[in-house]
C-alpha cells in the first residue's frame, strides 16, 4: 500500500471507530475543520509511527505543521525518505 493510501485508510478507520462523520478524504481536506478531533489526530500519529516507524512531528520545524491531508502525506513521505537514507 502506498503511503497516501495508508494515511487515507487510517483516517477512515479511526473516524469509524470514534464515530465521526467524515467528508470524502482528499488531499485538500483540512482535517481539523471536520469532526476529526485532537484525539483522532493523536491516534493517527501513533498508528502511523507503528506502521512506518516514522514520527515526523517529533523532529520537524515548528513552521512545518500540516494543515491538509496532502500536507500530512508529504510530511510522512519526507520522513520515509529520511529513514531509507
Amino acid at each position: 500500500m502506498s503511503l497516501r493510501s495508508t494515511v487515507f485508510a487510517e483516517i477512515a478507520a479511526i473516524a469509524a471507530e470514534q464515530e465521526k462523520r467524515m467528508p470524502p478524504i482528499t488531499d485538500d481536506l483540512v482535517m481539523l475543520d471536520t469532526e476529526f478531533d485532537s484525539l483522532c489526530f493523536a491516534l493517527l500519529v501513533a498508528r502511523m509511527e507503528d506502521l512506518t516507524g516514522a514520527d515526523p512531528f517529533g523532529e520537524m520545524d515548528a513552521s512545518d505543521l500540516p494543515v491538509t491531508v496532502g500536507d500530512l502525506v508529504a510530511l510522512y513521505d519526507r520522513a520515509a525518505t529520511r529513514l531509507a537514507a
Partner: peptide, 12 residues
Amino acid sequence: PSHWRLALMSAA
C-alpha cells in the same frame, strides 16, 4: 499545548 498544536494546524 495540545489545544494550541491543533489550532496551529487549522486553516482558520
